[in-house]
Write a protein that binds this DNA or RNA. Structure first.
Length: 268
DNA sequence: ATGGCCGGTGGAACCGGA
């Protein structure tokens, strides 16, 4: 079963590029981020006519996540638990019903910039960096629940985290950035440390593997990228991992997203 | 980070992104 994650940066602008990639890559399941659309405006027919079941969790203008699945989806949940006042659409999960059930979580983790700190180095309450770190605490809590269920499950999406220096072409440029600051990396590592396997790094070592290239300053032409889209597997899912790849060439096409898909192949 | 952008909104600039 091939399961992909793709931050499309706006469904309206990405209809052609997304459908072309779906037709070629033939993923069984895709989690999408930044659909930037309300549920009613999402062009679900385009995917239904390709055999996908469609579940969305959108909002106007920003954020928004979705799941496309060729197999039936059950027990769909929208919104990351832990803060009822959080209005941002960044989390959707569902169970894919096949021979064996697989729980799939799609996430769009907050960017966190600009980083605002008090004189004592504490993130300013109400600021974007504090929101990012608080969101990651909620993610850790949900992640721990997932592990406790002891079933094949994964959390895939745009984590907006550069885990290690080798995950950026120019790591020094990101040292103080919300994507790579020590607090951000530590929060990501704490989640992995609960018992997850980071799919890509479990199979591919070394620098030069990226999932995002900025539209600005010729970043793509310089291969000035960062690796910020990740797939985290529970032990029961990690045991089924056959492959994990980044579809890099997508970035060089017409009207691309600034992210490219990452996918895993699981033996189920 | 950066020389250089892009998408959405709303119908011009501006916000948000990473």
């Amino acid at each position: 079963m091939k399961i992909a994650s793709f931050n499309i940066n706006g469904i309206k602008a990405r209809v052609t590029a997304l459908c072309d990639w779906l037709d070629e890559a033939q993923p069984d399941v895709v989690v999408l981020q930044e659909i930037k659309s309300v549920d009613e405006a999402f062009p679900r027919e385009l995917f239904e006519e390709r055999g996908y079941n469609v579940e969305t969790h959108g909002q106007k203008s920003f954020n928004g996540v979705a799941i496309l699945s060729k197999l039936p989806l059950e027990d769909v949940r929208r919104g990351l638990p832990g803060d009822d006042s959080d209005e941002q659409a960044r989390w959707i999960e569902a169970t894919v019903v096949g021979k064996q059930a697989l729980r799939i979580c799609g996430l769009y983790l907050p960017n966190g910039n600009p980083v605002e700190l008090t004189e004592t180095g504490v993130p300013v309450a109400g600021g974007k960096y504090a929101y990012k770190l608080a969101w990651m605490e909620r993610l850790k809590a949900r992640a721990a629940e997932l592990l406790a269920e002891e079933m094949p499950a994964l959390m895939a999406g745009d984590y907006n985290i550069i885990p290690q220096a080798e995950d950026a072409k120019r790591p020094e440029a990101w040292r103080e950035d919300a994507l790579h600051r020590p607090e951000s990396r530590a929060a990501f590592q704490r989640i992995v440390n609960l018992g997850f396997t980071e799919a890509f790094r479990s199979r591919t070592l070394g620098p030069g593997h990226y999932t995002f290239w900025d539209y600005q300053a010729g970043a793509w032409n310089r291969d000035d990228g960062i690796r910020i889209d990740h797939v985290l597997l529970t032990p029961q899912a990690a045991d089924l991992l056959r492959d994990c790849q980044i579809d890099k060439e997508i970035r060089g096409r017409e009207k691309p997203s600034d992210h490219v898909p990452i996918w895993v192949d699981l033996d189920l």
